[in-house]
Design a protein around this nucleic acid. Sequence first.
DNA 1: GGATCTAAATTTAGGCGCTAGATTATTCTC
DNA 2: GAGAATAATCTAGCGCCTAAATTTAGATCC
Lengths: 412, 412
Amino acid sequence: MTTEQTGASTQLLRRMNTEKVLKFALHTGVFNASDVIESTGLTRSTAIGLCDLLSELGWITRLDDARAAGEYSKGRPARRFELRASSGFVIGVDAGEHSATVEVADLRGRVLGRVRRSFGEARRDAVVRVSVMTAAIETALAETAVPRASVLVTVFGVPAPTDETGHSPSGEGGFWGQMNPDLVDAFAGYGRVIVENDANLAAVAEQAVGAGRGIRSFAALLSGERFGAGLIIDDTLLRGHHGGAGEMRVLGLVEGVGSADGLAALARELAQSARRSATLPASSPLALLAPDEVTAEAVLAAAATGDLASREILGLLGDRLARVCLVLASILDIERVIVGGAIAVAAGPVIARALAVLEQNPSLPVPEIVASPLGADAVVLGAIQRGLAMVRSSPLGFVPAPEAVAAAPPAA
Amino acid sequence: MTTEQTGASTQLLRRMNTEKVLKFALHTGVFNASDVIESTGLTRSTAIGLCDLLSELGWITRLDDARAAGEYSKGRPARRFELRASSGFVIGVDAGEHSATVEVADLRGRVLGRVRRSFGEARRDAVVRVSVMTAAIETALAETAVPRASVLVTVFGVPAPTDETGHSPSGEGGFWGQMNPDLVDAFAGYGRVIVENDANLAAVAEQAVGAGRGIRSFAALLSGERFGAGLIIDDTLLRGHHGGAGEMRVLGLVEGVGSADGLAALARELAQSARRSATLPASSPLALLAPDEVTAEAVLAAAATGDLASREILGLLGDRLARVCLVLASILDIERVIVGGAIAVAAGPVIARALAVLEQNPSLPVPEIVASPLGADAVVLGAIQRGLAMVRSSPLGFVPAPEAVAAAPPAA
DNA sequence: GGATCTAAATTTAGGCGCTAGATTATTCTC
DNA sequence: GAGAATAATCTAGCGCCTAAATTTAGATCC
């Protein structure tokens, strides 16, 4: 019925405006035509036309309860629309070294389901990793009744640097390749696949829903076994040549740091060294631990009870953290360092100590240091947020899930 | 005669296409209608219409020698256009601590004139700095016969961090404020004014016309009296919270570096220390220098003649450079470090030494290290490039200089 | 319960900017 | 000078949007 190709260029305008409205819908959820007019500056006729179009495409649904609950208004009732959250889903995967955590979220960002699987002994085997994660994803999809065809994006967080295409450089004794055995190709069929460094995703999570909101330049510091950072500078995630920005292997060169070990590793090491020392009183909680109970958590707990040896260790941890923060703040002029990873929950005293150290030397820039509010979920959350951002950045590049289109009343 | 406001939105399309063509013109210089068609994908009618519009606006000129020199072609001769380079000019200023260098360039990026002025003794006085630079700019404009009204952008490079608005934080004992006494306001009247950190501009210059072309992540390292870097990561210049990204005051903490002193300062220091040492043979060129001749250049020159003490110093310089590069490459995963500043020309042996050191430790990422090809002009060049980039990024935001519009034949 | 008010939807007319296709103009080649 | 090649010009016509007048649907007032 319509003409063939006429107006290819003016249709660009149409596309732009459609996208504008769709983006508005994606971050607003429920709205009416007047909201669209206000946000886009378009005429009412146009705005309504675009809403109808998005309805037909399956992105939004028309609500018939014209005057919604509570929102009093006089005058003729407005057309009301709602983002059809089920028109697409995003999968986030924290593909850690030992286990994978999968979450499924709808377009509103609501997390619908979560599955966690351990890789077991064969965790470095590519086939095992892929099949365990496939099973986890399929389980999550089944539990949430999300058809695979409705998955728009799947995002993996891996403990390895990645480039823009999602591939990791060879290096670190093959570890990186093992952690990221070309996941982009292995998971074709689950929408667009993004593979990203885990610290980077943690930073994305902090930016979107954590302690990085409203902060333009910060580092999300993973500080468990090794230091590693996701860097967001001027609102932009840094990648670097091989995707290795934020790797902190150079810490071995920094005075008073001496190695790239993270806080948890360092705590263990110091505790063990204290246990071997003659000066540790036999009454210290540290001395009473079984060998495999010598963990960072145990040290922090002991310090909280007032144990002197543990408090000393805590001080050393704080010193090291301070120096790491100083390096980042000095070179990148960061406003805040967000300490995440397993140790974050209990890291309050360590952070306090680090801040005290920093304030002693006012000639250098002092960043804020805070514990991540996101806990162990930062990477999965970041994966979800990254996927949502991908959709939101150019939604018309995706085809909404068809399912409910037939069920929706024909617009017009 | 024309209607008032009708079609505000479709006129957006017009604006977009106009900008597209103008951008093409800005980076092409001379072109004909078919080139526009090819580059924009628009129809011939539209392309020609837009070229006529840009002609009327004063951005481009129609060339009447239809078939230009050499370019053989059959068929009806094409409309030929040329960017009117004089429809706007850009001023770049290297506002260094001791002197200012001003360059004026046209829209094609051709540098038309250059003026250099010393600030003299009162170089920290805001009034002096502003008036010296005003005089220098006016001289440069007069020499190049560029009317002030034709200046679209003026860019200053200052030895201080700057935020997006061009203001510097207070700090460094007031030095930053002295170097950048609100230049943005002081030079209103010279087009849009941009004030940017000098190392950042050096990086911009390297990216546009130097050793950073085609490299997505690199550092432009100024290594004279103090280390400081302009950081371009993933094609983007880093600023940080206060504009202090690339400041390297933390170097004092790095093992084997110990201070933030740059290579030139360190060379002097080491040479002086050697002269005080008993082991320096009286025949060494270093021993023969007058006290105020003990400079980095002298040390490098002596090393080139084979002087052992100087070669030793050179080795130490190389070590330090290596460590600085390592810090940058490790944290930011940069591909290349471009060594600039006064020492760059003679720094070949130091760089070679640094590379040798780096290759001894293959566990850490090894960046390339090269000397800047831009010499002492990097900052002014970067200022010009930054100004051109500003114009090119949204040219329609500028009003082209009117002068020649009357002289141009009416298009149509 | 009808008059009134209000905010929004709907309708109508028209213009801008683009494309497509036919026609015309200019040059080179042989 | 015919033919080929290339590009400008002319002519319709359509898609998308705006602007303004008109209608509609509910709330409120009396």
